[in-house]
């Protein structure tokens, strides 16, 4: 039995200590925004934050989390950096199939939190562990820079705006 602090709420889960956090989040807690990709910490799709640090939840035993605060894609928009990243993602229209993107956004948000104005090398170092099979890397890089500076980096899409707003 573990009490996990997930997105600001305490969740009690009755799972074995060696169950990976990803399983707990998706199958027990019911937060399915975090995706399963490779299962061996090689693709980044399962990235969540532990006390603000990006980690691969597919290889993180739930028993070693303790009191650390877990943030998932469902709540990343509640942080200032997360908000900026999500807006830039929409403005640049980064997403293609979208499967890897919750992980991309978690890694990008962690990067901007510790490095508000990242260089290309900073972006490489932080984002290389997140794979996108649609190859949206160019737009990911542009969106990270745009989130950092607030200035348009590439051609903007017209879908931006409040949810439900007509284009």
């Amino acid at each position: 039995m573990f009490v996990l602090r997930v997105n600001g709420e305490d969740r009690t889960v009755d799972v074995p200590a060696d169950m990976p956090l990803l399983w707990v989040l998706r199958d027990v807690v019911g937060l399915t925004g975090t995706k399963f990709g490779c299962g061996i910490a090689q693709c980044g799709a399962c990235t969540v934050h532990l006390d603000g640090q990006p980690i691969r939840s597919c290889v993180m035993p739930v028993g070693s989390i303790g009191q650390k605060a877990i943030t998932t894609i469902e709540a990343i928009g509640e942080t200032p950096e997360g908000q900026k990243v999500q807006k830039a993602w929409l403005d640049v229209d980064v997403v293609q199939c979208g499967y890897c993107q919750s992980g991309q956004i978690m890694s990008a948000t962690a990067l901007l939190t510790r490095t508000p104005n990242p260089s290309d090398a900073d972006i490489d170092a932080a984002m290389s562990g997140n794979i996108c099979r649609c190859g949206t890397y160019v737009r990911i890089r542009a969106a990270i820079k745009q989130a950092a500076t607030g200035k348009p980096e590439v051609m903007q899409t017209i879908v931006s705006g409040p949810a439900g707003g007509a284009p």
Binding site: A41, Q42, I55, V59, P61, G129
Partner: peptide, 17 residues
């Protein structure tokens, strides 16, 4: 940075386990 850092980390502390 692509294959190793997400578990071993740049400071070598080891993440996840």
């Amino acid at each position: 940075e692509g294959a190793c850092a997400s578990c071993h980390q740049w400071n070598g502390a080891g993440q996840q386990v």
